[in-house]
Design a protein around this nucleic acid. Structure first.
Lengths: 132, 132
DNA sequence: AATCTTTGATTACACATGTAATCTTAAATC
DNA sequence: GATTTAAGATTACATGTGTAATCAAAGATT
């Protein structure tokens, strides 16, 4: 590829995301804390998580402050920002940028809850108040 | 990994998806046709597209019928099915399975069009008719 | 102070992916 | 029929990713 500047696009991989997700839950956090959180669900080898933390640091997605022997990690990217970007990317790739067809898919496969519908109605009301 | 059976999970990569997307537009189609469609936007090297077609065949995402010297490719996966699966996966990973927060993100970043809102209202109406 | 952790850094290694080039072979053309 | 194309098959190769093991060093323990 040959990339001179270091302003790469930094895609976050599947496993890297899971680590970031664990960090978002509460930060700053040490590697051990993150490992504990992750191991409540599946089993991650300590070494694997450490590798993923390093890769996230290199990608400038998280950073840390040295604390005695261990590090205190914290995210550099906000969850909402990340979610926003990923959502738009998917909606753009799969539904030509319109979000309604995505929701339609959920509706047609009965993946729409009453809670969702209520929130959607509220969102729409807000939207209509704002836009004219 | 060691995988004896051949029923793998078959993730479709970014570039593979673009090729599949081009095929979905109209099929069956020859490799050259697909290459032409793809090259209306960006520039793909012929060899690259051929490789991606092969990989999609191996992943059992598409298949072909021999036609004289060239092949006629067609998808084995429906676009709507694929979209469905990807949407649910993203909503599950990022929004705890609820679609409304995703839509909220769009609303708050002004990515919601009147068209979207109209369609959403219609969907909600339908949903309410069905679910009591 | 010497030794034993424990933490992060470095290295490893197989498989995936992006991006082609080369090889084979059958079909088109002369 | 011999030769040239052109299509798919095979091979290539750097970088990314999943999944660790090993190395080095600073702190904790004795």
């Amino acid at each position: 590829m040959l990339m001179t500047t270091d302003t790469e696009k930094s895609d976050i991989s599947k496993t890297e995301f899971e680590v970031l997700d664990a960090l978002w839950k509460k930060f700053p956090a040490t590697a051990s804390e993150i490992i504990q959180r992750l191991n409540q669900n599946k089993t991650w080898h300590e070494k694997t998580v450490k590798t993923l933390l390093s890769r996230l640091v290199k990608k400038q997605v998280i950073d840390f402050n040295k604390q005695q022997r261990s590090y205190l990690y914290f995210p550099l990217v906000e969850r909402s920002t990340y979610n926003q970007k990923e959502s738009k990317s998917l909606v753009s790739r799969l539904f030509g940028g319109k979000v309604a067809p995505l929701v339609a898919g959920f509706a047609h496969s009965d993946a729409l809850s009453k809670e969702d519908v209520d929130e959607l109605k509220s969102l729409i009301k807000q939207w209509e108040k704002k836009n004219d």
